[in-house]
Design a protein around this nucleic acid. Structure first.
Lengths: 253, 253
DNA sequence: AGCGCTTCCGTACGCTGTACGGTACAGGAT
DNA sequence: ATCCTGTACCGTACAGCGTACGGAAGCGCT
């Protein structure tokens, strides 16, 4: 009943960390900001698997445990990384609300920006515990993405739901793409090669007559996409259907 | 250029493993099937973090390295676990194609079944490398879920895209739910308590006037959902929009 | 009985996050 | 100028991970 406390899950501490300015260096120049930047560099270049506290410290020329003076643990570090990545989204670019094509164009812009974000930082899709980040850049992102939906005839709750729907779709398709890329890099085989290596075994082991629709559709989709799936196509197709559905919702008013 | 081979990424080996019957026991009764069942039990009960080769072996009363006689590595084991989990989907239940309400009802049924699957096995959402599984149960699932879309006026490629869209949506919302549940269990605070602990700090640190739309909409959504997000609502809302969009696509023919 | 092949598994290596306790320096007080 | 104190830094250690390697043990066949 008492509920044993997990270590370092103090929301106040995390929030203060997220919203702090992180600019006061200690006596060796170590800063939260520098730690986050080093971690981002590692994750971007070598993937999330290569992100370890030792590796970050090494890149900064600092003892491993020194990081813990500035950051409570790895979980909080990844939270900071995520918020920092969100910071790139609408920094030097027009906000979605200034897009010319109304709410639909704005949401397409939002989808494209997030899609690009996940391509630059595929590790974001592998962070295990998606505790809500609530950092300054996440808040800015939420505001910027919500604004073009304001005043188009949706309730406040619906605005939130529509945005979440689009973002979930982008994240899901981006995750598929990131997975394909990771497998491709890990195995050295691209999608077509993998299929080629699998096909003979699959034919031998899988009785196509048991899966008539699946084999017909799977073959057609495979031909079309040059592989088992085409994330870019899935993004565009799904977004079109979703926005059509949202249009229905709006015009029904 | 030569492309150093990652160990144990032989598609043929994996496929044979997936499609094999796994019933021939060695001299200590160890079987692929038994290993997968033990692993499933651990992952279901204690989460993916608790799933280690040592732990699985211990549960089977067997040396850790004995597992490697039957399974090439942990990655292949998780592949087998995923296909085994898919096996529960349409086993003792009517297939989606026998749902009464046409393609729309069938897709709602598919969404509900997958939603339940992910509740029973939240670890499926944490498996990092989503290399396509292509096991027997995954194939059966694909066939069963595709069949009610056959003959409703969609092309083969569109059938695949529509199904993928629905499944991606379910997976995304289920991932949010699993994340919330995990945070709740890890911290012992439920959504409301977390919010309560965060609110004063957030108020102090976050200037609401900089985020007018976000704070208005966020508050409304928070009130409505009793928390930062309501995955069940997101599932239903998103599915409704998606299916409306698919209906548009079909009737436009 | 002898041989060979497969199954089982003990040990070890390099890696992880981080708890703990010691050291050394910066800044304020005297 | 000296002392004190708080904090930044970090070396060591621990428990756990996946799995490479090589030895041991039992089975089936000749």
């Amino acid at each position: 009943m008492s509920g044993k406390k997990a270590p370092g899950v103090d929301p106040a501490r995390s929030l203060a960390l997220l919203w702090g300015s992180h600019t006061k260096p200690g006596r060796s120049g170590l800063t939260v900001r520098a730690i986050v930047e080093a971690a981002l560099g590692i994750a971007d270049a070598e993937g999330l698997d290569a992100l370890s506290m030792r590796h970050v410290a090494e890149r900064l020329g600092v003892g491993t445990m020194s990081l813990y003076t500035h950051v409570p643990g790895k979980g909080e570090l990844t939270d900071l990384m995520i918020d920092a990545a969100y910071g790139e989204l609408y920094r030097d670019v027009d906000e979605p609300s200034s897009q010319p094509d109304g709410w639909r164009g704005a949401l397409e812009f939002v989808a494209a920006r997030n899609w690009d974000l996940y391509r630059r930082h595929p590790w974001m899709l592998q962070i295990v515990t998606p505790r809500p980040v609530l950092g300054p850049n996440a808040s800015l992102k939420y505001e910027a993405e919500l604004r073009p939906l304001d005043g188009v005839g949706l309730s406040d709750v619906e605005m939130d739901s529509v945005l979440a729907l689009v973002l979930t779709h982008v994240e899901g398709t981006a995750r598929v793409r990131a997975g394909l890329a990771q497998v491709e890099q890990a195995t050295g085989m691209n999608e077509a090669e993998w299929w080629l290596a699998s096909a003979p075994v699959l034919d031998k082991v899988m009785d196509a007559s048991r899966f008539p629709v699946a084999s017909r559709v799977g073959t057609a989709a495979g031909q079309e996409h040059q592989g088992a799936s085409d994330p870019a196509h899935a993004l565009a197709f799904g977004l079109a259907r979703i926005l059509d559905g949202v249009a229905d919702l709006i015009t029904r008013r």
